[in-house]
């Protein structure tokens, strides 16, 4: 399947048709939003299997709860909030399971790919993003990586816009330090 164009049907009509049990409308709604949900899930999980699981679970929950969607935010924002919640829970579950059952030394590697040794700037930055506190990391990924606005982030995470801005600013400050030290090493 190639990337699907946005459905020409207005979203509210599409939602009504999904609620009425129209399978074609379900597919159209999925097609319109799956890329954005998958991208966010992948950026947070850093793993194709987990991203796929989280995306599937997001849509399963969304279809189950669509009747509760009041239209107070955009459907895409509502879906993002489900995706973030699913991803947080999923990552926590996997991390706890590994820590408890496997006693792995590096439980933090959930949500990151093996990148502990290379000196490359992108690798170092990725490590630094992985190590950010969860709130900072989420806001940074959503805003600076995926291009969400602070309004969307606030609605998705259920936080004030000011909180989103503050967390982004702190995240950037920490990452700038990493960049600056990297630049310093290069000069040296």
């Amino acid at each position: 399947m190639t990337r699907e164009p946005r459905s020409p049907v207005p979203e509210s009509e599409l939602i009504d048709r999904v609620l009425a049990g129209d399978p074609a409308a379900e597919r159209a709604l999925y097609g319109a939003h799956v890329d954005r949900v998958y991208r966010l899930a992948y950026r947070l999980a850093g793993d194709p299997t987990l991203a796929q699981d989280f995306t599937q679970e997001t849509f399963i929950r969304a279809f189950e709860r669509l009747r509760d969607f009041r239209g107070e935010s955009a459907l895409s924002t509502w879906l993002s909030s489900i995706a973030v919640s699913v991803a947080f829970n999923g990552l926590r579950k996997v991390k706890r399971f590994r820590t408890r059952e496997m006693d792995l030394d590096d439980a933090k590697s959930v949500g990151s790919v093996g990148r502990r040794s290379e000196p490359d700037l992108k690798v170092r930055l990725a490590r630094a993003i992985d190590d950010l506190p969860k709130g900072y990391r989420t806001v940074f990924v959503m805003h600076d990586v995926e291009g969400y606005t602070h309004e969307e982030i606030g609605a998705t995470l259920g936080v004030e816009i000011g909180t989103s801005k503050a967390q982004l600013s702190r995240a950037r400050a920490r990452l700038r330090e990493v960049l600056a030290s990297h630049a310093g090493e290069w000069k040296a």
Binding site: E4, G31, V34, P48, F140
Partner: peptide, 12 residues
């Protein structure tokens, strides 16, 4: 940052 956890094509 754009390269951070760069997603592949989704298995739609």
């Amino acid at each position: 940052a754009q390269a951070y956890n760069l997603p592949p094509e989704p298995p739609r």
